[in-house]
Structures are given as structure tokens and as C-alpha cells.
Write a protein that binds this DNA or RNA. Structure first.
Lengths: 181, 181
DNA sequence: TGATGTCTATCTATCAGTAGGTAGGCAACA
DNA sequence: TGTTGCCTACCTACTGATAGATAGACATCA
């Protein structure tokens, strides 16, 4: 089945938002990307908050699908898999996690978008916490929060510094610190 | 000595950028904030990259001045002082760390701004690393990177979630994890 | 079968508002 | 007199959003 126009717009929007931010992403740019006019983008997403909400919802769903593929039996393999998801989401000079961008812009963003962003972070923490509890490591909650925050923050520091190794350093340190938290 | 107009503009700009982002901050808004016209703002900061660079430079200098006030002899007191700086920088629904915002927008920002943002992160890591080394804790570098990333990321997650306690949870977990990293 | 109505997805054209930036003038002050 | 700091007035480009039209698909009904 070929992509629907709605899906094409979301793909283009994700790319732009993850590299330039939500506010900097315009309906005209997206229209150009997919080969229609900006008025037609408004047909699919009446307002910008509508677009933002759909974008984060879709991102979280895809992320969840990837999480569900990770086996939980081997603690270290699972943690490696988790970090790989973040690592793949971070391409130097191209993109960082959609929700890191949305989170940083949060204060000026519509409430419906922030709610979806919050849900993304909760999804991640819940998955991690379940994994840690299953293996009797840490107290669960705190370690999970720390890891998610460190990975998101690590992406931002590494992106601003134009140095991918900074993200990898943070990711490794986060894993190594587990158990003592 | 009363504030110079340049200083007033920087204060207004910092407030706006930290709550709404750099791209969303306009010369007109700033002019309005300080009671002059936008053309006059251009007199002090010819272009937007000029403004951004001055903004981050000033922020880093002020942060460094605060860091220098923290005594290094007591490890835990020093860590508490460090985290307080971040904690004070984070006011729910009002502002997060300037460099968290700049870092998240980094890909679409002028290079001179990114360089200053990078310098801010390096400043923080160097201070932390020196503290940890002095007390023979951790291997220094990795733990310092993890803490900075976690604090920046913690602010973003907490801001998007509209829940300040998330930041505090991350901050505590980051400190507790020290030594094992 | 053919006419009628409705829905989808797009178009053109336009709106008011705002963006960053510039030219040139004016007044205070060293 | 020259510099500083601000002004008015303007420019071009772009923003999100809307109105109104249209072509084609499909379904209902005489």
C-alpha cells in the first residue's frame, strides 16, 4: 500500500521538527516537501497544534513498537537495545529525539502537544522500570528517570557540541551506574 | 550604576528565549519589553546571531561566577550547591536552562551560538570533573558528563510533563549514582 | 441507465500579522 | 564636530489560516 498524503506530511514534518524545531516548521515547507499546496496541508491538519499532536502521537507509537521487540530476559542486552533506539534517533547535524525538541520548546507549545510529549517520556520510564524491577536492580523508578533524562540531555549536549561521542559517553555511564542508584 | 540599554535587552531576551525559544524571540518583542523600537535593538545587536552569541556568553559568565562561589572542600555540599544552580534556573512554566533550549535548537542555529553553548557545557563538566577528581570519586569525566546531561534532560522532561518533582528525582538519583560510575 | 447529491483532496487567491533588516534623520553630548 | 543612541518609516519575505472553486470518485434513486 502506498503512503497516504497524511502519512507523507507527517514524515516530512518529523524530519523538519527534529532538525529545526516545531515553531520553525511551516505549513508551506511541508507542502513543498510533499508536492502539494499549504492550503491542502491544512485540509489534513486544520491547525498547527493538530499537526503537532499527530506528530508526537505517531512518534510515540513507533517507539513503543520498537520497545516491544526488545526481549526482557537478558538485562544487559535489553539495556543495549534500549540505548540503541535513542542512538538511532540521533544523527549528528540531522536529527535528535522528537520529544527532546518538543520538551525544550514545551513552555511555548500548545497543551495537547505537551500532553503527548509527557506520555512519551512516561512510556519510556515505565518500560525501563519494568525491566529493572524484573531483574531486581535498583529501586526502579529513580534509575529509570535518570536514564531517560540522561539520554535526552546527552543528545542535546552532543548535538550542540557537534560531537557524537559525548552522547555515547553519557549512555555508557548511565548503564554503568545502574544498580547503585 | 543603572542598567545600560544593552544589558536591559539581554535580560529581556534571556527571559523570552528561556521560556519560548530563540527562534520565537523577536526583535520587536524585545524592543517592546525595554521600551524602545526594534530598529534600536538592531543598533545594539546588528543581527540575530550577534544577539544569540551575546546572550549565551553572558549566561555562561554568570553561571561561572556562581560556580566560583561554591566551596570544593566538602564533596556533598559542593554537589548540592551545583544542583541548586540548575534547580534555580528551572522555574515551572517560566524558564529552563538557556543552554538546554539552545542545545535543542542547535541544528538550526548559527554556528557562533552553538560554539558558546558548547563552551557552557564544557565549563560545567570541567568544574564537576575537578571536584570529583579532588575527592577521588569516579573516574571523573564520565560521571561529570552523565550528571550534566541528566540535569539538562531532567529539566526538559519535567518541563514537558509540567511536574517539577521529576527534575528533583533525577537530580537526587544522579548524585546517588556517583562513585559507582 | 442516467441523473442527483455528496465526499475527498486538491487548487488559486488572499488575508492580517510578524519576521529580520535597512536608510536616513534628529538630538544630546564629548 | 563627531559620535552615540535613539527615532520614523519602510522593505521584502514569510507566517498560519481562510474562502471559494473544482475535478473526480462513489453511492443513491427514478
Amino acid at each position: 500500500m502506498p503512503l497516504t498524503m497524511k502519512e507523507k506530511i507527517l514524515i516530512a514534518a518529523e524530519k523538519r521538527v527534529r532538525s529545526a524545531g516545531f515553531t520553525e516548521t511551516s505549513f508551506r515547507d511541508l507542502a513543498n516537501d510533499v508536492g502539494i499546496k499549504s492550503a491542502s496541508v491544512h485540509y489534513h491538519f486544520p491547525t498547527k497544534p493538530d499537526l503537532g499532536e499527530a506528530l508526537v502521537t505517531r512518534y510515540a507509537e513507533q517507539f513503543k513498537a520498537e520497545l516491544d521487540k526488545i526481549g526482557l530476559d537478558d538485562l544487559h542486552a535489553a539495556l543495549d537495545g534500549f540505548i540503541s533506539l535513542y542512538s538511532n534517533a540521533f544523527v549528528l547535524n540531522e536529527s535528535i529525539c522528537l520529544c527532546a525538541v518538543m520538551g525544550a520548546e514545551a513552555i511555548g507549545l500548545p497543551e495537547n502537544v505537551n500532553q503527548r510529549t509527557k506520555a512519551f517520556f512516561e512510556l519510556n520510564k515505565a518500560w525501563l522500570e519494568a525491566l529493572l524491577v524484573k531483574h531486581g536492580v535498583g529501586d526502579g523508578g529513580d534509575a529509570a528517570s535518570l536514564i531517560v533524562a540522561a539520554l535526552e540531555g546527552g543528545m542535546i549536549v552532543a548535538s550542540a557540541s557537534n560531537d557524537r561521542s559525548l552522547f555515547e559517553q553519557v549512555a555508557k555511564a548511565a548503564i554503568r551506574g545502574i544498580g547503585s542508584i
